[in-house]
Nucleic acid binder design. Structure first.
Lengths: 229, 229
DNA sequence: CAATGGTTGTAAAGTTTCTGTAAAGCCCTG
DNA sequence: CAGGGCTTTACAGAAACTTTACAACCATTG
């Protein structure tokens, strides 16, 4: 059954929700703040997150946005305190899939969770495929020739970028602008990209010194070739 | 609208798929085995093929390989029986663009078909053509008489310049100002341009010593003539 | 008609720039 | 403070660019 991560700073609410969700047949994990949430997510990706808007060490919306930025696209249901319209709009804009206004009936939450899971399981388009490589974006899992491969966040983003722009030549400028958004500055002469390419090759190529997927276009950039049509 | 050819030996599946795809606005043709598939393809090339892996008179992958061998490069979506070994084999062997695991939701298949068509139809834009030469700019790929040709950055820029100014005589001054922007100085007596022309000719001309595309205009420069039909 | 000078084709050598790679340092988190 | 991930650095080798030298060609000229 599906694993639900519930994040709220009120232990009473957590207790009630956990009980109700388990009755409904879900596996339940809990966290009380942003730090714990990340900690959990780094270990195991749940199928859905129930997220309180206000957390002691941060904002639920920021957390949600950050999830999306890292290509973690599992559904998020927000718990908002008041039902001010602005909160709803903000919640949905931040990438949440649904929201429930406190105080709420546990039954309603369960129903929304089920609906959300049903909806998103159909949209399983989050699977990217290129030749012998299969990327399950929500689970952040990559298989190459059937074998599981663990990628770091940067490597994962890089691979997604390549697959979404298959066959096109990506300049280093383009890659830099895609993976190092505004806040993180990166000197134009930095060789980080090349190094990440090196790491990615060593993980997905059969013979990294004779790459079949990530091809170097000297003087320009790199090209991802899923097959040899 | 796009024409989809669905190949499956189960008439029930065919019926369901046909109905769903037509609702989605596609024109649908069906076949139940390899023989029928080839028969159809010889009459009319569809925009996309949905192909069952197991067919009564052959293997979907073989059919797919055969398509590629005949340079029919329309997208193929495979229907595979189960996850597991099959997708490893798929990845290794066939030239399919995507696959869907049975049993599947019709919605997912439609979504994948749309994604696939969107990808491949966008690709046919941004293309330059000149006689037997096809240049795909974002992919930086050049085909001459159907064969792939690798160009260095300077050669590529030079070729694009020629194609964009076809039939016109380009002086060396003009070429120098176009490819060597201000920062890079280039002595007026340098012969670099001639050397690059030489390299380009050796890659795109059938007989480099009797060029048909890049014609020398003595005392002036060069002219690109794609005219031969 | 042969000599001359200017222009282009061509191959090869010289030079510069770019890339692969390993190793080391940094920074954050647990 | 240990470990993992990210970034920098340094250097060797590869690729591309440029120069150079010479042959071929053509037109003009003495």
């Amino acid at each position: 059954m599906a694993l639900i991560l519930v994040v709220d700073d009120d232990p009473d609410i957590l207790k009630v929700l956990k009980a109700n969700l388990e009755i409904a047949g879900f596996e339940v994990a809990t966290a009380t703040n942003c730090a714990e949430t990340w900690q959990f997510i780094n270990k195991r990706i749940p199928d859905l997150i129930v997220l309180d808007l206000m957390l002691p060490d941060g904002d639920g919306m920021d957390l949600c946005r950050e999830l999306r930025k890292r290509h973690i696209s599992i559904p998020v249901i927000m718990l908002t305190a008041r039902d001010g319209i602005s909160d709803r709009v903000l919640g949905l804009e931040s990438g949440a899939d649904d929201y429930v206004v406190k105080p709420f009936e546990a039954i309603e939450l369960v129903a929304r969770i089920k609906a959300c899971l049903r909806r998103t399981s159909l949209e399983s388009l989050e699977r990217l495929r290129a030749g012998e490589i299969v990327v399950d974006v929500p689970k952040r899992m990559v298989r190459v020739r059937g074998k599981r491969v663990d990628l770091t966040p940067k490597e994962f983003e890089l691979l997604c970028l390549f697959i979404n722009h298959r066959e096109k030549v990506l300049t280093r400028d383009f890659i830099r602008n895609s993976l190092w958004k505004d806040n993180k500055k990166l000197y134009s002469w930095s060789r980080v990209i090349d190094v990440h390419i090196q790491h990615l090759r060593s993980k997905i190529e059969k013979d990294p010194s004779n790459p079949k997927y990530i091809i170097t276009i000297p003087g320009v950039g790199y090209r991802f070739m899923p097959s040899k049509r």
